[in-house]
Design a protein around this nucleic acid. Structure first.
Length: 866
DNA sequence: GGACTGGAATCATCA
DNA sequence: TCTGATGATTCCAGT
């Protein structure tokens, strides 16, 4: 079989393979997608959604309505979901769950399992600690080993070792984790773990696989290891952070309430459930895989208190669910906690915003801009950041390409009240943006960290909360976030986990901010960074294109394009490829590389002539740099335009500019940062267009771009942008334009199609709301937001899903959403969603996608008729 | 002494 | 089933 990469890149024609491994990429969702039919069904139900959507249309996420979104949604789906509960496992969790969740509705229940899957545990207990992977636990949990933990609050032990105090309280599902999952992991491993761990030790065993076990020195058990436990010892906390004081997160309380999230998640979950997978599961009694979505379900985002040092255990938070429990805890914590941060002025507490119960689930796609607000990544993170394992010490905070750290700014916010910026690690594949199963954000503390932060768990996903202060122009330097790698074996064993960790080493930093409106609504914005390669090896060996001097060229080619990046070799090849929507290669040709002018960090290539010299409309293709088999860069977008059309080079900015516009003007560099965004593969689905971001420029010009984000711009943009930061320009953000008609691929022609196509998410439906209309532009800023964000436009906008770069769009739903959604009034237009596929996807994946698309299209057409 | 880092050995999985 | 290649984890050592 091919490696995922290959597949992804696949240029191999043959390729088609199935996903190798399951593509990690494919999330469960995917699966669900496959079952497209199901999806559609759900969709239909969603009418209600629609309405809701409309309401929300704005893209705002209305918190107020609590369930608004969700509620309706929930209904149908949920029921099914409920079923979950039936499963033993589920039941268990439920029991664990705090009342709140239960209350939430059935829906919630469903999710739970899912939630569980991603263990919170993972979260590192302490920030540093964080590393421990909960997952493992989860897995263990699943295995049942963990009984012990289950009930006991501790469960989460590992989770939060730091947390300790609380820890006790909570129990979480995760717990399961506790038990043990992977013993190895965590706790043990980490030296830090508190002794307690031992106690925990239970057996986790589950994770046999991980080699680590053996290797790890730390493990208590030693080899046996598998059972290790987590330390969740209460106390402990390795505590990196000194400060113990827990900070309470402001929101906490608020958070509690978040039922909404549930809803969303719930919905998604429901959908998922509906999907085949779900079905199957049911049958088995085994909990379905919880899709990631599920995680979200949990509404709870529990904030963690961070102790200074510790963090909370995520698990706890989440887990515990009793509201009662949570609240108290959190608050306390918060209160105290805050001290840590020097910063001071800001107190977490302020952010009541969060309060809104219904914050969108982490896997929801949100726009980067809405109305006057625009969340932008002014300075993109470096394309490479070696994540650390639990067994290792921190590898520091993610840095910016030009030194320093990423910078995020909320434009258009004129209020005097501070807001909380949320950060979590998301996926960087073609699929919708969602929390990454194998990576967690890791809170960095220390002398070198100037930005206060604290961790919270959101359904097993660690979320770093950073204050956005008016006095700082609602800008924050992210020097407090590192990336923790969870062992693949730990995560993959978790029940609900469908993603594969192998070669799934690219992530994006996802930033969110929730702005309460006078109307009671909450506008939620999201911006995702450029993809960040977290693998040491990949970073050292895979060619990486940071920038390209040309984004478009007339069909005859012949122009020279300078590629800036890393790991280029003297014999590196640059291959242009065009794929059909179905993923088949339509065209592939190798560009001439001027070896003499090429260096390890730059390649000068001659644009090859397009296969069809008579273009009437721009055609998006992709190219990648290849250093040999299995060593290819991600796909980069490129657009051939009719010869008569003036080419615009550089424009990357434009592209996004337009949409993004908002943000900043792009630098005019020739090189676009774009980075690829995600490499996503372009699968057909994606069509190049999608890639949007990248495209940016090109599109912009001639076509409306999709709103792609500039994604590409990666860093560069950032940098450039950064300066601007100050401006808070409220600019209207552009909406993405999604509409743009984006360029379509030849294949795809109608935007619509795009839309439909996109769907990746089948499973997840997102309420329209989410996507605000505007968003499209998504992150304009800097980065390109990459795909991720989705925002890019079209996609995001539409999509609920996330943005992500890879994001795809949801099929129908999205569409609807779009239409209605766009509050801006913008017509939803487009929301074209595009989906990108992960490189890894195999053909299978592609095939599935295609099917989905077909289905979508069908449905779409139907709708349209309607 | 500890946090970061970079490099690389070792083991697992893939092809 | 064996083997080389590739990827994931864990260790080490330098700053």
């Amino acid at each position: 079989m091919k490696s995922a990469e290959e597949d992804a890149y696949g240029y191999t024609p043959n390729v088609s393979l199935s996903l190798p491994l399951g593509n990690p990429c494919l999330p469960s969702q995917y699966h669900s997608l496959q079952s497209s039919p199901t999806i559609s069904v759900s969709v239909s139900e969603p009418h209600s959604y629609d309405t809701q959507d409309d309401m929300r249309a704005a893209g705002y996420y209305s918190s107020s309505s609590v369930r608004p979104n969700g509620a309706p949604t929930l209904e149908s789906p949920r029921i099914e979901i409920t079923a979950y509960g039936q499963f033993p496992e589920d039941e268990v969790e439920e029991s664990n769950l705090p009342v709140a969740k239960r209350v939430n509705s059935i829906v919630t229940l469903t999710l739970p399992s899912a939630d569980g899957y991603r263990d919170p545990s993972c979260l590192s207990p302490a920030s540093s600690i964080s590393s421990r992977s909960c997952h493992s636990e989860a897995s263990s949990y699943e295995s049942g080993f963990s009984y012990n933990y289950d009930n006991s609050p501790q469960n989460s032990p590992w989770q939060s070792p730091s947390v300790s105090p609380k820890g006790s309280t909570l129990a979480l599902p995760g717990d399961g984790c506790t038990s043990g999952g992977s013993p190895r992991h965590s706790p043990s491993t980490s030296p830090r773990t508190s002794l307690t761990d031992d106690n925990w030790i239970g057996q986790r065993g589950s994770r046999p696989n991980s080699p680590c076990g053996a290797k790890r020195k730390y493990s208590f058990n030693g080899s046996g290891a598998p059972h290790k436990h987590f330390p969740y010892s209460p106390n402990h906390s390795p505590g990196p952070s000194p400060q113990i004081s827990p900070r309470i997160s402001v929101t906490e309380e608020t958070w509690l309430p978040n039922t909404n999230q549930y809803t969303n998640s719930a919905i998604l979950a429901a959908i998922n459930a509906l999907t085949t997978d779900g079905v199957a599961d049911l049958g088995e009694g085994i909990p379905m895989k919880a899709r990631k979505t599920s995680q979200e379900h949990n509404p709870s985002v529990s904030l963690k208190v961070e102790p200074g040092g510790e963090e909370l255990s995520p698990g706890e938070l989440c887990l515990d669910d009793h509201p009662s429990n949570r609240l108290p805890l959190k608050k306390e914590g918060y209160c105290g906690g805050f001290l840590d941060v020097p910063q001071q002025p800001y107190s977490w507490s302020k952010p009541k915003q969060y309060v809104s119960p219904s914050l969108p689930a982490l896997d929801w796609q949100l726009p980067s801009s809405s109305g006057p607000y625009s969340l932008q990544i002014e300075v993109q993170p470096k394309s490479h950041h070696r994540a650390h394992y639990e067994t290792e010490g921190s590898r520091g905070a993610v840095k910016a390409l030009a030194g320093g750290h990423p910078i995020v700014q909320l434009h258009g916010y004129m209020e005097s009240e501070p807001l909380t910026l949320q950060l979590f690690i998301g996926t960087a594949d073609d699929r919708l943006l969602r929390p990454h199963a194998f990576y967690q954000v890791h809170r960095i503390t220390g002398k070198t960290v100037s930005t206060p932060s604290h961790e919270a768990l959101h359904n097993n996903t660690k979320v770093l909360e950073i204050p956005l202060l008016p006095e700082n122009n609602m800008r924050a330097m992210i020097d407090c976030a590192g990336i923790l790698k969870l062992r693949n074996s730990d995560i993959e064993l978790r029940k609900g986990e469908t993603d594969i960790g192998r070669k799934n080493t690219r992530v994006r930093m996802v930033f969110r901010v929730h702005i309460n409106q006078p109307t009671g609504r909450t506008v939620s914005l999201q911006a995702a960074s450029n993809p960040i390669e977290c693998s040491q090896r990949s970073a050292q060996e895979l060619p990486l294109v940071d920038k390209q001097s040309l984004e478009t060229c007339p069909a005859p080619g012949g122009e020279r394009m300078l590629l800036d990046g890393h790991n280029f070799q003297h014999d590196s090849k640059v291959v242009f490829v065009e794929k059909a929507q179905d993923g088949h290669h339509l065209w592939e040709t190798e560009a001439k590389v001027d070896r003499d002018a090429s260096k390890s960090n730059s390649l000068l290539v001659e644009i090859p002539p397009y296969r069809n010299q008579r273009l009437s409309t721009p055609v998006h293709v992709n190219f990648y740099v290849c250093n040999g088999k299995r060593k290819r860069s991600q796909y980069q977008r490129f657009t051939y335009v009719p010869a008569s059309v003036p080419t615009i080079k550089t424009e990357p900015h434009d592209d996004y500019d337009a949409p993004l516009v908002c943000s900043q003007p792009g630098p005019g560099l020739s090189l676009h940062p774009k980075q690829y965004f995600p490499p996503q593969v372009m699968t057909p689905m994606m069509t190049p267009d999608l890639r949007p971001c990248v495209v940016g420029g090109a599109y912009s010009v001639s076509q409306p771009r999709l709103a792609t984000k500039p994604s590409s711009l990666p860093s560069s943009s950032s940098p450039s942008t950064s300066p601007k930061l100050h401006d808070l320009s409220p600019s209207p953000f552009p909406k993405c334009l999604p509409a743009a008609p984006a360029v379509q691929h030849p294949g795809q022609q109608s935007p619509i199609s795009h839309v439909s196509i996109i769907q990746e998410t089948p499973g997840r439906y997102q309420p329209p709301n989410l996507y605000p209309p505007s968003s499209c532009s998504s992150s304009p800023t800097s980065q390109p937001s990459t795909p991720t964000d989705a925002p890019f436009s079209p996609t995001h906008c539409m999509t609920p899903g996330s943005t992500s770069p890879g994001a795809q769009q949801h099929p129908k739903v999205p569409e609807r959403g779009r239409a209605s959604l766009q509050e801006d009034g913008s017509p939803p237009t487009l929301a074209v969603s595009i989906k990108q596929e992960p490189q890894e996807l195999d053909q299978m994946y592609l095939d599935d996608v295609n099917e989905i698309i077909r289905n979508d299209l069908s449905s779409i057409s139907v709708h349209s008729h309607a």
